Amino acid sequence: MRNKPTINKVQLDAIDKQLIKLLYDNARTPVTELAREIGMTAPSINERLKRLEENGAITGYRVDIEPAVLGYSLMAIVRMRQLPGKWKELEALIQAIPEFVECDKVTGEDCYIAKLYLKDISDLDPILNQVAELADTNTAIVKSSPIKRRLLL
């Protein structure tokens, strides 16, 4: 996992927030459409976008993929507590298994909490068997996600 960069707190005005919300809903929205929605000129919007990127408020633009369309019908949350002296190996293993799409290093009894996508429930044990050599695990299959990723404004 990467170390967090130093973050400087940024003050966003109402226009910045509106711009971020529009891009959050559709990162491919043309600048001309953003300008029309906000009631500003395209060059002004470009300047704001550049400033938001430079100050780190906007860190990138992304595409959301629906895992089920790619054949991944199950999602699991895996809590892991590494065995003594195995954290570096465990972290490297988690990064090497492509089905792990997110992982957080946490405080408490567990050391890592990861999100894992599976095409079939039979895919779970082979992955967990690899992890079991380095950590104790506790796995939950996700039934639904009442809150997907959402904007913090």
Score class of each variant (00 low, 15 high):
118 L>N: 02
70 L>W: 04
134 L>S: 02
38 I>L: 03
108 G>H: 06
73 S>T: 15
80 M>V: 03
94 I>W: 01
31 V>N: 13
37 E>Q: 15
36 R>C: 09
153 L>N: 00
96 A>N: 13
41 T>H: 07
72 Y>K: 02
98 P>K: 08
41 T>F: 13
2 R>Y: 09
146 P>A: 00
79 R>S: 15
47 E>M: 11
129 N>R: 14
143 K>C: 07
9 K>H: 11
24 Y>G: 06
149 R>G: 05
10 V>T: 10
12 L>T: 09
138 N>L: 02
23 L>N: 07
11 Q>H: 15
36 R>A: 15
16 D>S: 11
47 E>D: 01
36 R>L: 15
59 T>R: 00
141 I>C: 02
10 V>F: 05
137 T>A: 03
49 L>W: 06
85 G>T: 04
51 R>C: 01
127 I>G: 03
35 A>R: 05
38 I>E: 02
133 E>G: 04
134 L>A: 02
118 L>Q: 03
39 G>P: 09
109 E>P: 03
112 Y>M: 10
87 W>K: 14
22 L>V: 11
58 I>K: 05
42 A>S: 15
152 L>H: 12
147 I>C: 04
78 V>S: 05
89 E>G: 09
27 A>T: 13
98 P>Y: 09
120 D>Y: 01
151 L>T: 04
144 S>A: 10
67 P>D: 06
5 P>I: 02
80 M>E: 13
108 G>P: 03
54 E>Q: 11
102 E>V: 00
138 N>Q: 07
114 A>R: 03
117 Y>E: 04
86 K>L: 12
54 E>L: 12
51 R>Q: 13
29 T>C: 10
114 A>Y: 02
144 S>R: 04
26 N>K: 15
57 A>L: 09
85 G>I: 03
137 T>K: 01
94 I>R: 02
97 I>T: 08
77 I>L: 12
110 D>N: 12
53 E>A: 08
95 Q>P: 04
61 Y>K: 03
76 A>M: 06
66 E>L: 07
118 L>I: 08
23 L>C: 10
44 S>Y: 07
7 I>H: 11
37 E>F: 03
39 G>Q: 06
110 D>L: 07
59 T>D: 10
120 D>Q: 02
153 L>I: 08
83 L>D: 07
116 L>Y: 09
29 T>H: 10
136 D>I: 03
141 I>T: 00
71 G>F: 09
